[in-house]
Design a protein around this nucleic acid. Sequence first.
DNA 1: AAGGTACGGTACGTACCGTACCTTAAAAGG
DNA 2: CCTTTTAAGGTACGGTACGTACCGTACCTT
Lengths: 212, 212
Amino acid sequence: MDQTQNDLLSPPEQSKGEEDQPKGARRRGDVLENAILQAAWEELEEVGYAQLTMENIAVRAKTNKTAIYRRWPNKVKIVVAAIVKHVPQPDIFAPATGDLRKDVINLLQGISKPMQKIGAETMHALMVEYHGNDLSSQLMRPKTEDKLNIAMKNILKNAQKRGEVRLEQINERVISLPADLLRYEILTTHEPVSDSTILEIVDDIFLPLVRQ
Amino acid sequence: MDQTQNDLLSPPEQSKGEEDQPKGARRRGDVLENAILQAAWEELEEVGYAQLTMENIAVRAKTNKTAIYRRWPNKVKIVVAAIVKHVPQPDIFAPATGDLRKDVINLLQGISKPMQKIGAETMHALMVEYHGNDLSSQLMRPKTEDKLNIAMKNILKNAQKRGEVRLEQINERVISLPADLLRYEILTTHEPVSDSTILEIVDDIFLPLVRQ
DNA sequence: AAGGTACGGTACGTACCGTACCTTAAAAGG
DNA sequence: CCTTTTAAGGTACGGTACGTACCGTACCTT
């Protein structure tokens, strides 16, 4: 009888490396919320946006749809939340290298990786479902307050101090040009954006325009 | 008896302005196919891609889903077919105006209208569902065989003959730049692309680059 | 100890997809 | 003209996923 007790009671407590809760335990608040967002992110990476289901997110998070819908009203919102949580926001104040070319290349490379992580399929899907929602503010802001745009202007201001460019002669559209081209590349290409693409954007297009 | 025959045979033929078939008549082949494509196009314009359903297309075409699935395997395919039928393909061989600037502006304006008709939402949706399909060849080809790219090269060749540019010094990416920017604008903006946007692309970006 | 909160779990109604099946008009072919 | 074949009209179904409703209960607060 004693043997039997030991054999039956011990195993359930352990099982995997991940902190498993005891049999009837419940996670709440942030703990559960993080588990759901983590599950959503993993599902998104594994099966992609189109194949993503609320049910599967719930299963992976070891909870149920209800817990998800208590927090986010639909698929779009939870996916955006998962992305915001797991994808690093680009640095507005990238460290100045003292060279316009290097600064711009760094900026583009910095944003390239995170956007690749999200993937073109998901971005398109979000832009489809965005129609009508107020979702744009998360991913596609008006250009004047776009983070990348601000970062680019800071870079150009520094370049101006060094006499590399004359800011007042540079068109707004030229300022946003590198970021726009990079985003277009990511949206329309299905392979990852190569470093040489970034170099082309900078050396063959952007620099000739700002240095006139 | 003669009267009766006339009275009974005439009425079913008329009823609405649109060519209505008599009670139990059946359309076949191209007639039915065109009716379906027309209905698909109208639904697409009225409710958009996301809200578009096969059932509603069938109802509007006064037929049923079966007739649609006999012709197209899924929603993507019939939408593409409807677009191809109703949206004019852009003119590759735009008449040369004898001026590089005017040629490029004409080209961009020529492609702008048709793409606006399709709409950003539908384009994103198609690019989502494209993943894995052979659908890209309809909308997004490799750049070297892209129709717009060919047209742009023709324009530049003519400009070279007039001594306006030196083609061998112009980067491939610069050649596709105007079309890329226009497409990006259409994909990310929800308002129609204005003429001034096209002028900016041409005057502030493209021409300075090719005229060096 | 009592009460409120929200999690686990199940079941449901809805919507749409894509398919199976049957009937019947119209075309094809002798 | 009659028979055969084709394809349209029409209904119903299986299947998937969304989003909601409800119930019992673990956990937290006081």
